[in-house]
């Protein structure tokens, strides 16, 4: 099987969908000719294959980029636009929150908005808090938006293809640290369903629910705990909206214990939602209080020592699991 980074997997998904449907186009800052030249990046080579009509470099203009997507989608195109870094969605947020998410509802179901907004995210590259800020919980809080946050290259490819074919607005969040973590990606065409979590590692003692870049941390923690005889079940949500509550509850009912892990900050983070779902539906089956392992409630700092402190690590996960065993 081919080994690809997540950016390369995204690139394959974009190529396949653009070849399949001439109404798919991409737009964003540097999606054609960019300041980052790297074969591991998602839009490398697309301009050469599809030309400047379908690969549109835009000005630094996030509101216009997102508005372009919303307007063009209503008109029937399938835009896939990129917001370079997650914190910059604040500049596009009116178009995303008040328009992409709401205009279908406001039309009484007459119009649909088949658009994808790809957002690059994640801490770990020393850029500081205005480039690194995971805001998936904000987006998940807006009815009308699907929110997808893949953890593996294979899922990224299959989920992005599904997102492009979806008739709803999809926010597709890519953690840039995963661009450089190759993994197996099937050669043949496949779609990964949005709204379906994936048990990435089965186990019977504790459910560890996570998504995005934290899957790697979850695996490391599970490995260490396995050496102590503790079997961790790692559930990768893949999509926050729609949320696959079935898979979460099935796992928790089996293990009776829950740890939720995300890189985003703690207060108002999506771990709260996952925890609430479990408390509402599986309280009686919990053998211990749940635990959250998250980034602390601080902006992502720049210095390597401070940034490492910010990003949750396997030690914190192992500790959390031990506390509830």
């Amino acid at each position: 099987m081919q080994q690809l980074g997540m950016g390369q997997a995204v690139n394959q998904a974009l190529r396949e969908e653009m070849r399949r449907n001439s109404e798919v186009f991409i737009a964003g800052e540097g999606v054609g000719v960019g300041i980052h030249v790297n074969p591991m990046f998602p839009t490398t080579g697309l301009l050469e294959e599809f030309g400047s009509k379908r690969v549109r470099d835009t000005p630094v203009s996030e509101a216009a980029i997102a508005g372009l997507a919303v307007g063009a989608a209503e008109a029937g195109l399938r835009p896939v636009v990129e917001i370079m870094f997650n914190p910059f969605i604040t500049l596009a947020s009116d178009m995303i929150v008040n328009h992409a998410a709401k205009l279908r509802y406001l039309s009484g179901g007459k119009s649909s908005f088949p658009l994808v907004i790809r957002v690059k995210t994640g801490a770990g590259f020393g850029a500081g808090c205005q480039h690194s800020h995971n805001l998936e919980a904000w987006l998940a809080h807006c009815p009308g938006l699907k929110v997808v946050m893949p953890a593996t290259p294979a899922d990224a490819k299959g989920l992005l293809k599904s997102a492009i074919r979806d008739d709803n607005p999809v926010i597709f969040i890519e953690d840039m640290m995963l661009y450089f973590a190759p993994g197996p990606v099937p050669e043949e065409e496949y779609l990964t369903p949005i709204g379906k979590a994936d048990v990435k590692r089965p186990g019977g003692d504790v459910s560890l629910v996570t998504w995005g870049n934290m899957l790697g941390v979850a695996f490391k923690a599970a490995e260490r705990l396995a050496q102590e005889g503790v079997e961790v079940e790692v559930v990768d949500l893949r999509s926050l909206v729609p949320l696959d509550t079935e898979t979460i509850l099935e796992s928790v009912r089996k293990t009776g214990r829950l740890v939720v892990l995300h890189e985003a900050t703690r207060t108002g983070g999506f771990a709260g939602e996952v925890s609430a779902v479990v408390m509402e539906h599986a309280f009686g089956e919990l053998k211990a209080p749940l635990r959250r392992v998250t980034g602390p409630d601080i902006p992502v700092p720049a210095s390597p020592t401070l940034e490492r402190f910010y990003i949750p690590d396997e030690e914190q996960v192992v500790t959390a699991v031990r506390e509830i065993l």
């Binding site: 509101a63 216009a64 997102a66 508005g67 372009l68 997507a69 919303v70 307007g71 063009a72 989608a73 209503e74 008109a75 029937g76 195109l77 835009p79 009116d94 178009m95 008040n98 328009h99 205009l103 406001l106 039309s107 009484g108 007459k110 119009s111």
Partner: peptide, 28 residues
């Protein structure tokens, strides 16, 4: 919103119609 007469988007967020119109015109 009256898409049947090609008036698909009415936005009450002041100024928000302009980027939406850019998207519609782009599709055209």
């Amino acid at each position: 919103a009256v898409p049947e007469v090609n008036a698909p988007c009415t936005s009450t967020v002041v100024g928000a119609g302009l980027p939406l119109a850019v998207g519609q015109a782009f599709a055209q």
